[in-house]
């Protein structure tokens, strides 16, 4: 369970709904058009649950966590 996770946004499917930034403000900001800005792609261990919730909440399924470092 020590493998690191990194965030990835599928830019084509993302429509800027903004749920991810509400659930994971530590790592995700929104730009002026409402699209996610990843402050840090690497997910720290203490944020892993939040990251998972953000991934599950995306109505477009555009947010992913990949195994391994970014």
């Amino acid at each position: 369970m020590t493998s690191t996770r990194s965030l990835r946004v599928n830019r084509i499917t993302c429509t800027g709904q903004g749920l991810c930034a509400e659930l994971l403000p530590e790592l995700i900001d929104l730009d002026e058009w409402g699209y996610p800005l990843l402050k840090d792609r690497a997910v720290p261990d203490q944020l892993r649950t939040h990251a998972r919730q953000a991934v599950a909440a995306c109505p477009r399924l555009a947010l992913h966590t990949d195994r391994g470092r970014p």
Binding site: Q17, G18, L19, E22, L23, A57, P59
Partner: peptide
């Protein structure tokens, strides 16, 4: 209200 709350 947050969008994620509506989703939940």
């Amino acid at each position: 209200i947050g969008r994620f709350e509506i989703g939940l």
